[in-house]
Amino acid sequence: MLIYLAMQDTSCERDRLAEIYEKYKNQMFALANSILGDVRDSEDVVHEAFVAMIPYIDRLPEEAAHPKVRAFALTLAESKALDLYRKRKRRKLVFWDDAFDENTAVPFYDPVTEGSDIAKAIANLSPSDSRLLMWRFDVGLTTKEIAKILGKKEGTVTRAITRAKERLAKELEKEGVSIK
């Protein structure tokens, strides 16, 4: 891709997807590889994640460096990697996505301790819960669009978002945070 971009005659030929690809391909690959531990599988994940991103490019800020773009790219890569991880039953890491059925995720990353209570609680939710909330409320995807990305039924996604919100409320209640 570096070669490809270098060969472009004008900057206008570097469309947004190419820019996003250049910026985040390595991060997406690293994230996928940390879950899968397999170079080829991780490359497939990067490919799948980019293909999944294409229909929603217009929803993202113009600037490729915007955190919303980065988060969308990484959540897609994480989601696709976990899908593959589940499919192939590779239990190389003690890390599991709840797959909408039960919240069994074991935090792989250190929980954040800074920031406001509600934001912190969202960021510390299980990967699938935080991802769903970000796609729904940050990127603004509809439940139908999320269902399409995940290959699930819309009703399943709607229920999953509801459960994510319930878990968030529970978490905040446990921490004594008022949400009124």
């Binding site: 955190p67 934001a119 912190k120 969202i122 960021a123 409320f137 968030l168 949400i179």
Partner: peptide, 28 residues
């Protein structure tokens, strides 16, 4: 929890989420 509350904090939550995944990335 109300959707408006989540919307009010989701930007900050996203930045924290990214921070959780901050790692050194090598060129692949």
């Amino acid at each position: 929890i109300d959707d408006n509350i989540i919307e009010g904090y989701i930007g900050e939550a996203r930045d924290l989420w990214l921070k959780r995944r901050e790692t050194e990335t090598a060129e692949h």
